[in-house]
Design a protein around this nucleic acid. Structure first.
Lengths: 206, 206, 206, 206
DNA sequence: GATGAATGAGTATTCATTCAT
DNA sequence: GATGAATGAATACTCATTCAT
């Protein structure tokens, strides 16, 4: 990696953190460059616009998560475990920002939405394959696989992403998920641990 | 209603429309007062800040929708029909803005989210009562009623609010909803019409 | 005149002087407001953009000069004298800026050109009437009156506006002007004084 | 010519075209180097500043045109024809840019003016010699030769350079020119073709 | 000769808010 | 109740120029 690229990556990293902390619109270019300790011109040397930085940030996140998810999808483990692993791959950045981002998270809809759209697009096919594998193995039984996967992802994101949920939420979600995919009761109990993991140190957003 | 109150209500109504059209952040106080034909000072006579206008707008929306929903919940009709009516009450702005808001919908997350949080809080108990009524009548059978209601609302909002969904989406959703509440297949087919209604004139954007 | 209008007029006056001194592009909004001692917002309260200020400046100049010229055209004096008076009305800013504008004059093409276009459009008909009056009186004799007037204005502007010309220039110009309008030699000697007046205190620059 | 010189000349040529198309101020160094495919440093290796590029561009133009004009002035043809040829040499860029520059011509006053000043300085003595030759041959009769030449150049530039003129303009101009130089009516009718030539393919702008 | 990353002062414009009348 | 002139910090973005390699 060249010297110039390192500067650019640092800017992306800082932008990433800022966008999570305060949201895209609320983060000014000035704040980013001040934290990076570079001049205004340097920022605009690397990015044609502020919006381009958002794209770069999202690309970075997607790239990382998708590659982790793909690996998980390819591993030779039982289907339910594999599902857990794939979904887990898409739950971003546990250790890193978890703390910082908790601060203020109200306004980063733009990042959230762009990211969600792209993640959904990447995650749905991946998970659908896992579900179909489960169907072949007799673990699951359902039609409209892609749609059901999409719904479970929407639901899990709306419910758990903010780390604010009860045991009842988890129980109901597991029951719904099992019925959604036509699985036997208990098959997807593993989800409880998956989301529980995110509850403690992943205080993403209120 | 006094003269001053009428002015204030007009400002709220204009702000409401603008927020839907362009989003909260993207609507300037100047635009609101210009459309209202009042002076800057007048705005700040009625509202301590721009943010206060957002709160007022949300209050107005909630109040209207909740009262419609309460009426629906109290009407003596079969439970599935009642559910449709209550949910329908919470789907805002059918006739009025549906057209206008189609224009731009990308940035009004702030309004959306504030509204959603409050609507969820109001809608969940109301719908839960309806579901419990259904349980007593043997139409539904489930535990964690409130949680399940919440999930169906999250899911329906994530899936259908943007009017961009397929027949497969609808089919899967209906199946999931029935299983979620332990209803017999076909019990909740009415949902298809409910969401179809929003698809036509609510060409919001994808 | 209201208070707000006075502020606006002051801004126009300052912009006018700055534009003459340094040119439109080279004058920043910051410089104008600093000299006026007002805040940035005040400027943009009165003008939608910097360009609008240029328009306002030009309007101000045109309005003044045209009204002076119209008066001169209506006065009951001999035709050659009247011509001198009308032309003189269009030679702007003798006393006021003459000094300040001398500083730098290199870049104000934009002002100059916009102004020239509009002045020419106003001056040509006015002077043409005077020339036709002269033709009726037998002082002048020519066709294509408007075109000839336009040419003499272009020529006089190109030659004398910068105050940098010789006696030979004046002599040749007078000869050409007389021949252009078919006047007897000496008829338009008055021009010499007209342009001489601009030479001293109007040390614009070359 | 060395390799470095070729690079420099290419930069001048590109700058020349850009300055004509968009004007000096509106052309950024970035645009020039991008089109040339060289690095920023390369530009500043060849030119101490952007302004220096303008000077270089003007030098290039002058040099070309003056040498063409000198050739024309030395050729053994009748005086009126020679005048036409010399003036024609100074009307720049017939074939090359005529099209490109038509795009935008509003802002390149700086180039225009610098060029005009220098062209005038070069053209006046050259044309004056031609006029004096005409006087010796009895075709022309006038004093203040240089001044009259200058005036005709100013006039022709102000009138015809933008290609927007009428037959009346041409007629009046020819009449004035003949009287200016004391020529017999008809002597300078050739001018009509000269300017007509510029009207067609030189659609610079209105 | 040539590169390209870095600079930083400068640009026009926006906008929520204040306050004397 | 209502006005509208005034504010000033903030914003995204530009661009001629420098310099270590």
């Amino acid at each position: 990696m060249k010297k110039g690229e390192r500067r650019k990556d640092e800017l992306i990293r800082i932008a990433y953190r800022k966008f999570l902390e305060k949201g895209y619109e609320q983060t000014s270019v000035d704040e980013i460059i001040e934290e990076a300790g570079v001049a205004k011109g340097t920022f605009y040397y690397h990015f044609p616009s502020k919006e381009a930085t958002l794209e770069a940030v999202i690309d970075m996140m997607i790239t990382e998560e998708v590659s982790r998810a793909r690996e998980a999808a390819a591993s030779p483990v039982p289907v339910p475990v594999k599902m857990a692993a794939v979904i887990g791959s898409f739950r971003p950045e546990r250790e890193e920002q978890s703390i910082a981002m908790a601060v203020q998270d109200r306004e980063n809809f733009r990042l959230h939405e762009k990211l969600n759209k792209r993640l959904l697009a990447e995650a749905v096919p991946l998970l659908s394959d896992v579900v179909r594998e489960g169907i072949r193995q007799g673990i699951f039984a359902c039609e409209q696989v892609e749609e059901r996967v999409k719904m479970m992802l929407i639901l899990s994101s709306g419910l758990f992403d903010d780390g604010d949920f009860t045991e009842n939420d988890a129980a109901a979600f597991i029951d719904i998920a099992e019925k959604t995919f036509g699985a036997k009761p208990g098959t997807m109990a593993f989800i409880r641990e998956l989301i529980a993991g995110g509850k403690k140190d992943d205080g993403r957003e209120s």
